[in-house]
Computed example of a mutant assay.
Amino acid sequence: MSYDLAVWDGEQPRDEEADAVFDELYERYLDSEDVLAEPSPRIEAYVEALVERYPDDVPGSPWASPPVMDEASGPIVYLLMSYSRAEEVFEYAAGLAREHGLVCYDPQGETLRS
């Protein structure tokens, strides 16, 4: 079981628009085999900082689908966290997104994380 979090580079949408923005980005960059874009520089820096704190190549890693950088494409990364450590990693990942000026979205709760 995993807990998911989406982080993207772009303008902060209004709460009622966040789900539609996420769906469009996910479909365009992550759900399509036609588009395998390199992560944007801001997303790449974010993921690098995230895996510095929570490595994805060690036993007991909190990531359900390592390596984490493989879950990034263009302006978005879709983080899959092991449910057992989700709360710990989720809070750090959301705070780190704020520090990097990125949008953080909880697709399960369909809410923005600020």
Rank of each mutant, 00 (worst) to 15 (best):
M1V: 13
M1L: 12
S2C: 13
S2P: 15
S2L: 11
D4T: 09
L5M: 08
L5E: 03
A6V: 04
A6N: 04
V7R: 00
V7D: 02
W8K: 07
W8H: 05
D9K: 12
E11M: 09
R14Y: 13
R14I: 12
D15Y: 13
D15W: 14
E16H: 11
E16W: 07
A18W: 03
D19K: 12
D19W: 14
D19I: 05
V21S: 02
F22V: 00
F22Y: 13
E24D: 08
L25N: 00
E27F: 13
R28N: 00
Y29V: 02
Y29D: 03
L30V: 00
L30S: 00
D31N: 15
S32R: 03
S32K: 03
D34T: 10
D34M: 10
D34Y: 09
D34N: 08
V35P: 02
L36D: 15
L36F: 13
L36S: 14
L36Y: 10
L36K: 15
A37N: 07
A37W: 07
E38A: 12
E38N: 09
P39M: 03
S40W: 12
R42K: 14
A45W: 08
V47T: 11
V47Y: 04
A49K: 09
L50H: 04
L50R: 07
E52T: 12
E52I: 04
D56L: 11
D56K: 08
D56W: 07
D57K: 10
V58Y: 02
V58I: 09
V58T: 05
V58W: 06
P59C: 03
S61P: 03
P62S: 04
W63S: 01
S65G: 07
P66Y: 06
P66Q: 08
P66A: 09
P67R: 00
P67S: 02
P67G: 05
V68Y: 03
V68E: 02
V68Q: 02
V68W: 05
M69T: 11
D70A: 13
D70M: 13
E71F: 11
A72P: 05
G74C: 05
G74E: 06
P75Q: 07
Y78P: 04
L79V: 01
M81H: 10
S82K: 15
S84A: 14
S84R: 14
S84Y: 14
R85V: 06
R85Q: 15
A86K: 15
E87H: 13
E87L: 08
E87C: 04
E88L: 10
E88V: 06
V89S: 07
V89W: 08
F90V: 00
F90R: 06
E91L: 13
E91A: 13
E91N: 14
A93V: 06
A94V: 11
G95N: 06
L96P: 04
A97I: 00
A97L: 00
E99F: 01
E99Q: 10
H100L: 08
H100Q: 05
G101Q: 09
L102P: 07
L102E: 01
V103E: 00
C104T: 04
Y105S: 02
Y105K: 01
P107H: 11
P107K: 07
Q108T: 10
Q108M: 14
G109L: 14
E110R: 08
E110Y: 01
T111H: 14
T111P: 04
T111C: 10
L112Y: 07
L112Q: 01
L112S: 01
R113W: 10
S114Q: 15
S114F: 15
S114A: 14
S114D: 15
